[in-house]
Design a protein around this nucleic acid. Structure first.
Lengths: 196, 196
DNA sequence: ACTATTTTTTACCAAATGTCACAGGTCCCG
DNA sequence: CGGGACCTGTGACATTTGGTAAAAAATAGT
C-alpha cells in the first residue's frame, strides 16, 4: 500500500527505513467510490491527500454556477487545498472522485510534527509545492494561446489523463466550452485522415 | 531603508531586534534605472528581491516572440524566479524595471542559512509563497472569464498598479491584446457617460 | 521647448469561441 | 428490458477577440 508514496518520496529525498516507517504510521487510508467527495466547498481542509488508485477532479463553482476545474489528481499526485489547510479557512473547492479511488491522507498537524523531526520530509514537500507552483505559472502562460495549442499541449503532457476523464472536464480545465473542444477534436481527426 | 521590509515581515511573524538585525545584515541594496534588467532569460536566478521603490515586470518571450507578463512587482512585493533560484537552472523570465527602482536582495544561500537559525523566517517565506500560489490559482480561474470582467477585477485588486504601468503590459498580464484593452476602456467610459 | 520615439486609439474585417437547440449514444439501475 | 441521467457531436447564429494599418496622443531625452 505504501510502495507508491515511498517511491515518490525517494525520487526527491532519501529516507532511511525508520523514517519511512514513522511517515507511513502517520498516513490514513481512505477509499472513495465514484462521485463521492473528498472535500466540499465550505469545509476546512484538514489533510493533504496522495492518490494511490483512481482519480479526482478539483473544481470551484463560480458566480454563474459554472464548474471550473482547477486540477486533476491521479495516481502519484498530491491533491488538496493547501490554502484552506494551512490557514484553517473554508475552502472554495470541491474534490470529487471520477472513479473508485484510494488515497493516503495525512493530517496537517501530523505533517507539521514530522517536519520538525524529519527535515528531509519538509524538503520533499517544498519541492512538491514548488513544482505545483511552476505548473500553475506554465498554465497561466498557456492560457494566452489559442485553444487548439492548449489542447495539444494537454495531450502531450497528460495523455494518460485525457483517456480517463470526461471531455467536458478537460474542456473546463483548458478554459473552453465542451462544444469547442468537441469541434477541435473532429478537426484534428479530419486533418489526420488527410495526411494518411 | 529596512523599514518597509521589516514592517512586511512583522505582518506575518514576530522577530526580535537581534533577529531583525541578522536578517538585514544579509540584505543587499540594489538600484536599477528604468529599463534595466534585474534578471534576464538564461541567467540563473541567485537572489530573492524585495521591492522598496519603483516597479518591475516579469515576462517570458514565447515561441512567436511575444512578451507575456507573468507578474508585476511594486513596493512591498517579493519578485524573483523561485524555480530557477531553488533548482539552479536557467530562467525563462526577464525582470525589467518599469521605473527607477530599488530592491533589497538576498542570496539563496544566505536565506537558507537564516532559515536554520531563524525558523520564524522560514515560516514567513512559506506564507509568502503560499500567497503567491493562491494568487496564481485565482488568476487561472479568472482567465476563464471574458476580458471585461478580468480587467474589472484587475482594477479592483491592483488599482494602484494600473496607474503606473503601460496599458500594453496590463493587457499582456490579462492575456489580451492592447487593442482589445483599449476598446474595453473606451466602452467603459462610454457606459459611464450614459449612466451620468 | 522641440523632436524622436513610444504608446494609445480607432476603423474595418477576419477568425475564434460561445450559446442554444437538438440528436444520438452509453451506462446504470430498477 | 426500459427509462432516465449523463455525455458527446453538430449546426445555425451571436458575440468576442484578434489582425492590420493608420492616425492621434503622450512621453522621453536632449
Amino acid at each position: 500500500m505504501y510502495e507508491l508514496i515511498l517511491a515518490h518520496i525517494a525520487r526527491h529525498v532519501t529516507l532511511d527505513k525508520q523514517e519511512q516507517d514513522a511517515f507511513c504510521a502517520a498516513l490514513q487510508h481512505r477509499k472513495l467510490r465514484r462521485r463521492q467527495y473528498l472535500l466540499q466547498e465550505g469545509d476546512i481542509c484538514r489533510h493533504d491527500h496522495f492518490v494511490i488508485k483512481g482519480g479526482l477532479r478539483q473544481y470551484e463553482v463560480d458566480a454563474d454556477g459554472r464548474e471550473n476545474v482547477m486540477q486533476f489528481g491521479f495516481e502519484d499526485w498530491w491533491i488538496s487545498d493547501w490554502y484552506s489547510m494551512l490557514t484553517n479557512t473554508p475552502t472554495v473547492y470541491n474534490i470529487e472522485a471520477l472513479e473508485d479511488t484510494e488515497v493516503l491522507q495525512i493530517e496537517r498537524i501530523k505533517l507539521e510534527q514530522l517536519f520538525i523531526t524529519m527535515p528531509k520530509l519538509e524538503r520533499y514537500m517544498r519541492i512538491i509545492m514548488l513544482n505545483a507552483f511552476v505548473a500553475l505559472q506554465r498554465r497561466v502562460l498557456f492560457m494566452q494561446k489559442p485553444s487548439a495549442e492548449r489542447y495539444a499541449e494537454f495531450l502531450r503532457r497528460y495523455a494518460h489523463v485525457e483517456q480517463r476523464v470526461a471531455q467536458q472536464h478537460v474542456a473546463s480545465y483548458l478554459g473552453i466550452t465542451r462544444e469547442t473542444l468537441s469541434r477541435l477534436r473532429s478537426q484534428m481527426i479530419k486533418q489526420r485522415g488527410e495526411k494518411l
